[in-house]
Simulated scan of single mutants.
Amino acid sequence: MRYTQRTQPQKPPRARSSAKKMTIQDAIDAYLLHHQATNSQPKTLEWHTHCLGAFRAFCDEASLSPMEDVTTEQAQRWVISLQKAVVTSRGKRSARTVNWYFRSLRAFYRWCLHRGFIEEDVTAWLELPKVEKPLIRILEAEEFERLLVACSVDDLSNRSTGAHHVARNEAILWLLYDTGIRLAELKTTDFDRARGTIIVYGKGRKERKIALGRNALQVVGRYLTYWRQQFPSANEVQQFFLTEQGGITREGIKMLFRRLRLRGGFTDRRVHPHLLRHTFAVRYLMSGGDVFSLQELLGHEDMETIRNYMHLADANVQAQKRKFSPGDQIQLTSRKANRTGFRKAKE
């Protein structure tokens, strides 16, 4: 964290002058209420609640109550305290986590400035903590096949998985692998059978359509036609993927991936739903897809994340070239003969 000498952002018209009366807790409550009223994603609301709760606890400890009491220096001290605190068994927060805490605080202060709760945005003079580029991992084709095989392998209690569960698990894997949708979007997905597309409602309830490939369409269609009705809650729940009790939850899918990881023998790496999103993005670019259509398919508002996929796709292409390089397939009889031939050609 450091100061940057740049022009203070222009302030929009304030709704009212209430900076001296608005407490930090009241401002946070109003901000979270705004997110609820504008239909923000539950995960977004949960994260802002967590981050701003940490900020309020810091302010309480420093005896800061009105919004006007907080200065740029104190906002900086809060970020430094996040960097130094030991919070997990692995130690301190990562730079990326601290970065997201600060993003939440900056969004909160910008909103308060717009509403007239403060006279100045104290975060405007601070830069985001620098973070390294994320290391993006993807699944190889044979690894995805291992996950599919693991869907029908006996679980750890030695009970055979029911056929309708196998069909559901395979459909989940194919849908995530072939479309790159987010885990949270699985619950809000509609299926247009006539066009072979799914309709996804992403962040901010933004709608986008994604066509399914032949393999994914076959597996998902078979599950919906023959196997979904085998679940007791099929006629009561509109959700795509079901359990014996109702619609499958976010935690239920995470638990499924943990089981598939064990059954598939993935002992040296994490296997999670977002891994399939990364895999889709990289494979799409490697297969000739363009970055603009990928941005639309993934539901990203900017190109920053897409650039990470572009670099990884290029690295994979070069690795594949080295693996299957035509020049390395030539079997030379001997280096001496090769040098002799070169000398003769030169003469």
Rank of each mutant, 00 (worst) to 15 (best):
L105Q: 04
L52I: 04
T44L: 09
A319T: 12
A184F: 11
Q229S: 04
K323I: 06
H35N: 08
R182K: 09
P66N: 11
P232E: 03
I24S: 02
L294N: 06
S89T: 13
L156P: 05
V220H: 00
Q239M: 13
S18N: 07
F342T: 08
V200N: 01
F257V: 02
K92Q: 15
E120F: 13
R195K: 15
K254I: 00
L183G: 04
H164T: 03
H311M: 08
R283A: 06
E301S: 15
C112W: 11
F257T: 04
Q218A: 13
I306P: 00
H34N: 15
S157P: 02
A313H: 05
A167L: 03
C51G: 13
T7R: 06
H114N: 09
V131A: 14
M286P: 07
H165M: 14
D192F: 05
A27N: 05
L186I: 15
A15L: 15
E46I: 03
R283T: 10
F241E: 03
P129H: 03
K20T: 04
T189R: 02
Q295M: 14
S63F: 12
N235M: 01
F191K: 07
G196I: 00
S157R: 14
K20Q: 13
E301M: 14
C151S: 14
W100Q: 15
A171M: 02
N169Q: 12
H34R: 12
G116Q: 03
R14W: 14
E132C: 06
V87C: 13
G288F: 02
T197M: 09
D268I: 12
A141K: 15
L52N: 01
E145Y: 02
Q295G: 00
K321F: 12
D178Q: 01
R146G: 12
L176E: 10
D26K: 01
V149Y: 06
Q245C: 03
L64I: 15
V291D: 00
R269L: 00
R2V: 09
R269S: 03
G327N: 06
I306L: 01
L297N: 00
R205E: 04
L224H: 04
L275Y: 07
L262I: 15
A124Y: 04
M22F: 06
R182M: 01
T4C: 04
G246Q: 07
G247A: 13
A163S: 14
L276H: 01
P12S: 03
H114I: 13
R208E: 02
R6D: 01
F257D: 00
R322F: 05
T188I: 00
A345Y: 13
M1C: 11
F191H: 07
P232M: 09
R222E: 12
A345W: 10
I248W: 06
L285I: 05
K20N: 15
